[in-house]
Amino acid sequence: MRISARNQIKGTVKEVKKGATTAHVLVDIGGTVITSSITNESVDALGIKVGSSVYAVVKASDVMIGVD
């Protein structure tokens, strides 16, 4: 896979929750879980299922940091 986004994090699909049109894909990255919201059509087209090896790709123009 070649992509311009620098933040590519490899993980394993922990859960796929399909809704009416959108799915939430939970990706386990060494004990930390990242959730992605994608279309059900994309889940099917990519063959995403529990146990699949995937990349969480983060592309953002701003990254905010908060502290207590």
Results as ranks from 00 to 15, higher is better:
18 K>C: 02
27 V>P: 00
9 I>D: 09
56 A>E: 15
51 G>S: 10
14 K>H: 07
13 V>E: 01
65 I>L: 13
41 E>N: 10
5 A>P: 01
21 T>L: 06
29 I>E: 08
50 V>R: 07
6 R>M: 15
34 I>Q: 08
10 K>G: 06
44 D>W: 15
44 D>E: 13
14 K>P: 01
38 I>F: 01
51 G>Q: 14
58 V>T: 11
50 V>S: 07
62 D>P: 07
59 K>T: 12
7 N>R: 09
9 I>M: 09
53 S>K: 12
21 T>H: 04
33 V>H: 12
68 D>G: 13
42 S>R: 04
41 E>Y: 12
66 G>K: 14
66 G>A: 15
28 D>G: 08
28 D>K: 09
55 Y>D: 02
66 G>D: 06
33 V>G: 12
47 G>H: 07
18 K>I: 03
24 H>W: 05
60 A>K: 09
25 V>M: 01
61 S>W: 09
57 V>F: 03
11 G>N: 07
39 T>L: 04
18 K>P: 03
67 V>L: 15
19 G>D: 04
3 I>S: 07
11 G>P: 02
13 V>C: 02
14 K>C: 08
37 S>Q: 10
54 V>I: 08
60 A>V: 15
51 G>T: 09
52 S>Q: 10
64 M>A: 14
21 T>E: 00
40 N>F: 06
9 I>S: 06
63 V>P: 02
1 M>H: 10
3 I>A: 09
44 D>L: 14
47 G>I: 12
66 G>I: 14
4 S>E: 13
26 L>M: 08
29 I>V: 10
67 V>T: 13
12 T>E: 08
25 V>I: 07
18 K>N: 04
37 S>K: 07
27 V>A: 03
2 R>S: 07
52 S>A: 11
32 T>A: 11
62 D>Q: 13
21 T>S: 03
29 I>H: 02
68 D>K: 14
10 K>R: 12
53 S>D: 11
48 I>F: 06
60 A>R: 09
8 Q>V: 12
32 T>Q: 09
50 V>N: 05
52 S>T: 12
4 S>L: 14
50 V>M: 09
54 V>S: 02
61 S>R: 11
31 G>P: 01
13 V>G: 00
46 L>Q: 03
31 G>M: 04
45 A>G: 06
3 I>Y: 07
22 T>S: 05
44 D>F: 12
29 I>C: 05
26 L>Q: 04
54 V>N: 02
38 I>K: 00
60 A>D: 14
43 V>A: 02
21 T>G: 01
55 Y>E: 05
36 S>E: 15
51 G>C: 10
3 I>L: 11
52 S>V: 13
27 V>D: 02
40 N>I: 08
35 T>P: 10
67 V>Y: 14
38 I>T: 08
4 S>W: 15
45 A>V: 10
32 T>C: 13
58 V>M: 11
64 M>L: 12
26 L>K: 04
42 S>G: 10
34 I>G: 01
20 A>C: 05
16 V>R: 00
6 R>T: 13
31 G>S: 04
40 N>G: 01
57 V>E: 01
30 G>I: 08
15 E>W: 00
23 A>W: 03
14 K>T: 07
37 S>M: 12
22 T>I: 11
